[in-house]
Amino acid sequence: NRRVIAMPSVRKYAREKGVDIRLVQGTGKNGRVLKEDIDAWLAG
């Protein structure tokens, strides 16, 4: 149960899109989840 590193704005964006942020692979520094990662996850 790893802790997800993401800015609050990215967490909010994921919530609005209905994405469980824990399932998204972060590509930022130290595995940080970026807004682009959410978009990529939604695109498949």
Rank of each mutant, 00 (worst) to 15 (best):
G18I: 05
A43H: 13
R15K: 13
E36N: 14
D20F: 05
D20H: 07
R32N: 06
R11N: 02
R32D: 04
R2W: 04
V4H: 04
G28F: 03
I21G: 01
R15N: 09
V24R: 01
V33C: 04
I5K: 07
L42M: 12
D39W: 06
G26E: 02
D37V: 00
L34A: 06
R11A: 03
G28W: 02
G28D: 04
V19P: 00
K29I: 09
M7P: 09
D20K: 07
I21K: 00
N30G: 14
M7E: 11
D20A: 08
L42A: 09
G26W: 03
D39I: 11
A43S: 11
R11V: 05
G44S: 13
G26V: 03
T27Y: 04
R15F: 09
V10F: 01
R32K: 08
D20R: 06
A14G: 05
E36G: 15
E36K: 15
A6H: 03
G28M: 03
V10L: 03
L42P: 05
D37L: 00
N30C: 07
G31Y: 09
A6T: 04
K12G: 04
G44A: 13
D20G: 04
V24I: 12
T27G: 08
V33F: 01
N30H: 13
I21Q: 01
S9G: 11
G26T: 04
L34E: 12
K29Q: 10
G44L: 14
L42C: 04
L23S: 11
P8Y: 07
G28Y: 02
V4D: 04
A40E: 11
R11I: 06
R11T: 03
D20M: 07
I5D: 07
K12Q: 06
D39G: 04
T27A: 05
K35R: 12
L42H: 08
R32S: 09
G18Y: 10
G18V: 06
K17I: 10
R2G: 15
L34H: 13
V19N: 00
W41M: 07
S9Y: 12
K12N: 07
S9P: 08
Y13A: 03
A14W: 01
D39N: 12
E36Y: 14
G44M: 14
E36H: 14
K29W: 09
A40D: 11
V4E: 04
R3Y: 04
R22D: 07
Y13F: 07
K29S: 10
M7V: 08
V10K: 01
V10Y: 01
Y13E: 03
G18Q: 11
N30F: 13
K12V: 06
R3P: 15
A6Y: 03
G44P: 10
